[in-house]
Simulated assay, not measured.
Amino acid sequence: MQTNNPIPSSLHLKRPCLLVADLERSLTLYRDCLGFKLDYVGNADPDSYLYPVFQLPAAAQLRFAALSTQEEPRALALTEVKGSPLPPPPKPHRGATVIRVPSLASVLPQLATLGLCPITASSFSTPPNLTFTEQAVCDFDGHLIVLYEVQRSSTS
Rank of each mutant, 00 (worst) to 15 (best):
Q2L: 15
T3M: 13
N5T: 14
N5P: 04
I7N: 01
P8F: 09
L11T: 08
H12W: 08
H12K: 05
P16W: 11
P16G: 13
C17R: 03
L19T: 10
L19K: 07
A21I: 11
A21E: 04
A21W: 07
L23G: 01
L23R: 03
E24H: 05
R25E: 01
S26D: 00
L29K: 00
L29M: 02
L29E: 01
R31C: 01
D32W: 01
L34M: 08
L34V: 07
G35Y: 10
G35M: 05
G35W: 04
L38E: 04
L38N: 02
D39L: 06
D39P: 00
D39Y: 03
D39F: 05
Y40F: 14
V41F: 07
V41S: 05
G42V: 07
N43P: 00
N43T: 08
N43E: 03
D45Q: 11
D45M: 14
P46L: 15
D47Q: 12
D47R: 09
D47V: 14
S48I: 14
L50N: 09
P52E: 07
P52G: 12
V53T: 12
F54Y: 13
L56E: 04
L56V: 15
P57F: 13
P57A: 12
A59E: 12
A59K: 09
A60L: 04
L62S: 06
L62V: 08
R63Y: 07
R63V: 04
A65G: 02
A65W: 03
S68R: 10
S68Q: 09
S68V: 14
Q70C: 10
E71F: 08
E72W: 00
P73S: 13
R74C: 07
A77M: 09
A77R: 02
L78E: 04
L78T: 08
V81D: 09
V81E: 13
V81Y: 08
V81G: 05
K82N: 11
K82A: 14
K82F: 12
P85F: 08
P85V: 10
L86F: 13
P87A: 09
K91D: 00
R94M: 15
I99Q: 00
R100Q: 12
R100Y: 04
R100S: 08
R100P: 00
R100E: 11
S103E: 15
L104P: 03
A105P: 00
A105S: 13
P109L: 15
Q110E: 09
Q110G: 08
Q110S: 15
Q110N: 07
A112V: 11
T113A: 11
T113F: 13
L116V: 01
C117F: 08
P118N: 08
A121V: 13
A121P: 00
S122Q: 07
S122R: 11
S122N: 02
S123Y: 10
F124N: 04
S125G: 11
T126D: 03
T126S: 02
T126L: 08
N129K: 12
L130W: 12
L130E: 05
L130F: 14
F132Y: 14
Q135K: 05
A136F: 02
A136W: 06
D139I: 03
D139P: 01
D139S: 03
G142T: 01
G142R: 05
I145Q: 00
I145V: 13
I145N: 03
L147V: 14
L147E: 02
E149C: 04
V150W: 02
V150P: 02
Q151G: 01
R152T: 12
S153I: 06
S153H: 06
S153K: 05
S154L: 09
T155Q: 06
T155K: 03
T155D: 08
S156E: 13
